[in-house]
Write a protein that binds this DNA or RNA. Structure first.
Lengths: 163, 163
DNA sequence: TTACGTGCAAAGGCTTTGCAGTCGG
DNA sequence: CCGACTGCAAAGCCTTTGCACGTAA
């Protein structure tokens, strides 16, 4: 669920090119670089992080172009946009695997994915009861990830021994 | 669930005063005005909306003070802060009634509350499975509210008759 | 009296927009 | 060649911060 396979990434890149061709839009070096970087992402990077990675990869892209290209990818249904309430947005390649929601570690910022279709069924039912037309949902669980829990425990027992 | 009863509002206002007194913090006209306005709110107003209401009520409050007071109310556990990904935050008085989540109408911006404890139990279990320590969750269902669905239907059948 | 609050205005962080120069098809 | 793109810089939004003045206790 984390990282797309090289095949999936290649397929998505091709889909993006087709998407652009169909609209008679130029296939530029920058657009390919951004899409490629996104399809390789094993995580949920912010715009800043994507910019950094592109620069590191020797394919620097201007901020405006980056935002515009991400927007195209999102509207094209190839990338998901998340707002976890951190004050900035995160982006995630749309994997072929099933939909999922997120566990967010308040300590280290880690984002962990989980799938649960009962959840969506339940939300659809709830919406129905209110005569509300379901379109999509957002579910986040905030707390502390396994690693940070372990670290906390360590600092209690393994740290400077008492007495 | 929507609007606090006058008694609840009064009780919360008193709690806020106690909160301030305990910390030896001044009980100012502005703080009371903001708290009072929040505890009367039947909805999930933005900072801008709260500011507008205070001005309309003849109790104008500066932006900085408003943000600082809301922050105090949130940290004091008297008001909930929401980020529905609209680019600004919304605030909601913490009612004595049980926790709830939200249906968000993409058409008119309306926010509808719903309660479902199975949901929280399910999320706690999911977190557990990942050895993740549950602290809180956020669940939103985005779609179209009953009113907007009705309006859409009208415009299809009741609008300018075809032919 | 004095510590804290208030409001204005400036600064900040993220994102969008305007525009001159550039490039894909 | 032409329409669309790119990148810089400026502008926009919402929120936070600095500071001189005001006020609750």
């Amino acid at each position: 669920m984390a990282r797309l396979s090289p095949d999936e990434a290649a397929a998505l890149l091709e889909r993006f090119q087709r998407h652009l061709r169909e609209r008679r839009l130029p296939i530029t070096r920058q657009r390919m670089a951004v899409a490629d970087e996104m399809f390789r992402a094993p995580d949920h990077p912010s715009v800043d992080e994507i910019k950094r990675r592109l620069r590191a990869a020797g394919e620097p892209v201007g901020t405006a172009t980056l935002y515009r290209t991400l927007d195209a990818l999102v509207r094209g249904g190839l990338v998901l946009e998340h707002d976890f309430g951190e004050g900035f947005k995160r982006y995630e390649p749309l994997s072929s695997s099933s939909a999922h929601d997120h566990l967010l570690c308040e300590r280290c910022g880690r984002v962990i994915e989980f799938a649960n279709d009962r959840l969506e069924r339940m939300l659809r039912m709830t919406a129905d009861e209110q005569h509300f037309l379901y379109r999509r949902h957002r579910v986040e669980v905030h707390g502390t990830c396994a690693e940070c829990r372990g670290r906390d425990l360590e600092s209690l027992t393994g740290g400077r021994p008492r007495r």
